[in-house]
């Protein structure tokens, strides 16, 4: 298992990001990743990626700006539509 760290972002910085985090962790485990997650709100992303290393930013709210870390639209994890695409995007961003 490879350890990875995900930053999950939603408007409240808690509820929908936790839902996505939970599901991404499960999905990534099946692909050999042991993911830890941190949940935050869009305004805190810049500061978080500056102070901590993340492998991926998974967003369910628009997060403006470019970061050194790949950013993935993860809304599909909540709706179940395009879930496979989100996982594929994540795996690609994680380099597998």
């Amino acid at each position: 298992m490879k350890d990875v760290k995900l930053l999950c972002v939603c408007g409240s910085g808690a509820v929908s990001s936790s839902m996505v985090a939970m599901k991404l962790k499960d999905a990534l485990r099946e692909h050999g990743y042991n993911a830890t997650t941190v949940e935050t709100s869009p305004n805190s992303v810049a500061g978080m990626v500056e102070s901590t290393h993340f492998d991926l930013i998974a967003c369910v709210s628009p997060v403006p700006g470019d970061f050194s870390v790949p950013k993935i639209d993860a809304v599909g994890m909540l709706t179940g539509l395009g879930e496979d695409q989100v996982i594929e995007d994540c795996l690609k961003a994680l380099g597998s």
Partner: peptide, 10 residues
Amino acid sequence: LEYPTGLQLD
């Protein structure tokens, strides 16, 4: 208003 919570499901 800022971060809407609608979701289009199947």
